[in-house]
Design a protein around this nucleic acid. Structure first.
Length: 243
DNA sequence: ACGGTTGTTAGGCC
DNA sequence: AGGCCTAACAACCG
């Protein structure tokens, strides 16, 4: 379920918990829960695929993996891996991985790479790609959380399709304007994704992900698991150029 | 009913 | 050392 847009949806369910006191933390996951007793939650934030609970001097990141779920003031029958309890409510996480970090999120994460945030810096990311990832495939880079935090398989498949670039293209071979285009398109696809979550049409309305045929050419999309990441890709050989 | 998946990490083997 | 691979985790959908 959770690429970056889903994390934003989670975060938007939690404004009422900001500045409230956490009375207790629970769950079977590893967590120094005694540090989360009777302290004020300063704010809920996000970075990429992580939901962040910010306290004075430290914060807790929650990563949902492939199957993670969050329920607010509601429970499943199974035990949560993590839960925050408040005087008048609770947040439950299932199959989520959590970690406590000292300091503030700004000192741990570089928000310029988070495709969901206003701080996202396309120029910075383009420079990063050219200088540090010249030999990498663009298809792999679009899943690399150090470059495109929050981007997942659906976003990358559609971003590559819509910008007309084959995932196996090496970054150093992609013209600068095309690199620019795929970066901008990634952000646009992610915003689209976000709008489609409440409509339940994320997959249905995807451009290429999960589709049998290219909507433009009506020829079959090539389904494969290329690159280092070996995630499923859908490629139109007509639309997407190999550089 | 069962195979596939919006993800990542750990550990083994060259 | 580090790149590449697999297994592991676990829940929901069709």
């Amino acid at each position: 379920m959770p690429e970056g847009p889903s994390i934003i949806v989670f975060k938007e369910q939690l404004p009422d918990f900001e500045n409230k006191t956490v009375t207790e933390a629970s769950g079977y996951g590893e967590m120094p829960k005694e540090r989360l007793q009777n302290i004020r939650l300063r704010r809920v934030d996000s970075f990429g695929k992580n939901l962040l609970f910010v306290f004075d001097g430290f914060f807790v990141s929650v990563h949902f993996g492939l199957f993670g779920r969050m329920l607010v003031n509601d429970r499943k029958k199974v035990n949560p891996s993590f839960a925050l309890h408040f005087p008048d409510g609770e947040i439950n996480f299932y199959v989520a991985r959590t970690k406590l970090h000292e300091g503030a999120p700004e000192s741990v994460y570089d928000f310029r790479t988070d495709i969901m945030r206003p701080e996202f810096d396309a120029d910075y990311v383009q420079g990063l790609l050219k200088s540090n990832y010249a030999e990498a495939n663009i298809g792999d880079a679009l899943l690399d959380q150090n470059i495109f935090a929050g981007s997942g398989n659906i976003i990358r498949v559609d971003a590559l399709y819509l910008s007309g670039i084959h995932p196996d293209s090496k970054i150093k071979d992609v013209p600068a304007a095309k690199l620019q285009e795929v970066i901008d398109t990634t952000v646009a696809v992610a915003q689209d994704f976000l709008l489609r979550i409440p409509l339940g049409t994320v997959k249905k309305e995807a451009a290429a992900y999960g589709k049998k045929n290219c909507p433009k050419h009506d020829i079959p999309l090539i389904v494969a698991n290329p690159g280092k990441t070996k995630r499923k890709s859908y490629v139109c050989e007509k639309c997407q150029q190999r550089y």
